[in-house]
């Protein structure tokens, strides 16, 4: 087992989680999107690294797909949204930044506790990194819950998705290609849908505070 391979893998996986935590820390929407791009790239590095090591062509293709979708397409879309948005800051999160970071730490601990139960089945250098993916999922979800800005919400959603993708790569070296393809495209489509919604809303209605709408309730 080459150390470079492991080193790159650990670095990239760490970058995925780190960028997730960073999104919690940063307030500027543009910065958040950059973090997301970083994360997409790191994710594709993980996939490619694994693919090269295990000679999985399917996984290589997946890595490329991830790079295109999560490293390029989605951040670009989000950037476009953010540019049109006059208020491009996550001004008032429901849980403030320091507290968010504390929560994130707690969530990471939790993911290690849970993750070890998963990795215990087949412990190896690679699978042992899987808790990072779970932590990314939880941090992403946390972001989704606590951030008010529409773009932040979308980013949270993608973080969850990236975390899952990371786990997929680490645990199983990628699920069958068709599934992975479907999954990635679905994410892309969801983002497109969300973007479309935001645009239509802005076009259609006076308010663009999509996430603050509370007209539908009991």
């Amino acid at each position: 087992m080459s150390t470079t391979y492991v080193g790159v893998l650990e670095l990239a996986a760490g970058a995925v989680l780190l960028s997730a935590v960073m999104t919690l820390w940063r307030r500027s929407v543009r910065a958040i999107v950059s973090m997301l791009r970083l994360q997409g790239v790191a994710l594709s590095v993980v996939a490619v690294d694994l693919a090269l090591h295990e000679h999985e062509h399917a996984l290589l293709a997946t890595g490329a797909l991830v790079l295109v979708v999560k490293g390029v397409a989605i951040p670009a879309l989000l950037r476009r949204i953010a540019q049109r948005d006059p208020r491009s800051r996550e001004s008032r999160p429901l849980v403030n930044v320091p507290a968010s970071l504390v929560f994130a730490a707690a969530l990471i601990v939790l993911s290690y506790v849970v993750g070890t139960r998963i990795t215990a089945l087949a412990p190896s250098v690679v699978t042992n990194l899987a808790p990072l993916g779970l932590a990314t999922v939880l941090v992403g979800y946390f972001m989704l819950v606590t951030r008010r800005h529409a773009v932040s919400k979308i980013v949270g959603l993608i973080l969850v998705d990236n975390g899952i993708a990371l786990m997929t790569f680490l645990l199983t070296s990628g699920v069958p290609l068709i599934v992975e393809l479907g999954a990635s495209l679905d994410v892309l489509l969801v983002v497109v849908v969300l973007q479309f919604l935001m645009v239509s809303m802005r076009h259609h209605s006076a308010t663009d505070r999509l996430t603050e709408m509370k007209a539908l309730h009991d």
Binding site: L94, L110, V114, L138, Y141, F142, L144, V145, T146, R148, K153, T211, M213, K214, A215, L216, H217, D218
Partner: peptide, 24 residues
């Protein structure tokens, strides 16, 4: 009726809690 107050944050928080509970 106050349970469903229309806030997506609250709905997401409920889901998050459920996820955490389930994981634990």
């Amino acid at each position: 009726r106050r349970l469903q107050n229309g806030s997506i944050h609250r709905y997401l928080a409920l889901g998050f809690l459920a996820l955490l509970v389930v994981l634990v």
